[in-house]
Design a protein around this nucleic acid. Structure first.
Lengths: 174, 174
DNA sequence: GTCTATACTTTGATAGAC
DNA sequence: GTCTATCAAAGTATAGAC
């Protein structure tokens, strides 16, 4: 799905998945839309668990935030800037053309935001401000994926991480 | 170009532009890649001028920042969340598949970042921090476009604007 | 020089053989 | 139930009439 929705042809998918194209329609009667929706949900859930695991392993939310951006930067470098947010490309592609898939991407982003909100609340951020901080966290991470991939430069993601860490630090100390 | 690179077929472009498909290849011998590159450069330049105009009309960079995010939110609402960043969708689509277009998108983002860096420097931010602040500004704006379009909710962009305004205020006072 | 018509490929999807 | 073969439509690109 890193090639985007329109860039991922069903024939190509059937080849790399070793499954005949007829089988895809057996398991996903809804065709490409249903296949994409399930893939998005699975990828979105997996990425959320990954981020949760990073926060679980960190002593506090400031360290967790720092580790998230650092891990994103390293993943970008290791994959030659191919492995990034599994939702963003498709989300922008379908935002104005496929209402079904747009809603799926919206639900994933909402789930991520709620997850981060809970983390920040539990970490000492006042509830009224936690949701705002979570939104800034997600937007900054997504912006970092975009700019780092375009420039093939992960230092942008690291720079954004430093900025985000300062923001979380300030929010905790209040 | 709001439909993305792969979502914009040449036949469709020739129809809405009232130009035969043969004419496209007369003016853009390089085919779709060249057409996309020129479109990206034109859109990128136009958007930069738009943002510069907003900052020119504002009394200071704090107000300019606030006006930028507010204008982005209003544009999203007015266009039913279709009119957003003219580069981001294509940038993510081509990042790992078309090196020529990836470089074009990277140059546009770099130009935007330099423009914002100059603005912030002239507005009182210490030079060493201006580039970092400009990167955060752009990443936040791009993240806002993504999340607002997916959710069809411009309050996300406004919320991010408030956060960014606070960051600029802090940077100016130092 | 402009543009019509077409070539060739790939797309998502389906019918039907086994 | 699985998968091969094929469909109609849309993709990019080009040849050639005028």
């Amino acid at each position: 799905m890193q090639q985007g929705y329109l860039g991922s042809g069903l024939k190509h998918i059937s080849q790399i998945s070793q499954a005949p194209i007829g089988s895809l329609y057996h398991f996903f009667p809804g065709g490409k839309t249903e296949l994409a929706a399930e893939t998005l949900k699975a990828s979105g859930g997996a990425y959320q668990e990954l981020v949760e695991a990073v926060f679980d392993a960190a002593p506090d939310i400031v360290s967790g935030t720092r580790d998230c951006f650092q891990a994103a930067a390293e993943t970008l470098r290791r994959s030659d800037y191919a492995d990034a947010c599994p939702i963003a490309t498709v989300a922008l592609e379908v935002a104005s053309s496929d209402e079904t898939l747009r809603e799926v991407t919206a639900e994933i982003f909402e789930s991520w935001t709620e997850s981060a909100t809970s983390r920040f609340t539990a970490g000492g951020v006042e509830p009224a401000r936690a949701r705002e901080l979570a939104t800034v966290f997600l937007a900054t991470l997504e912006g970092g994926f975009l700019l780092s991939r375009a420039a093939k430069d992960a230092t942008t993601m690291e720079l954004l991480g430093h900025s985000m860490v300062e923001l979380v630090e300030t929010a905790v100390r209040r």
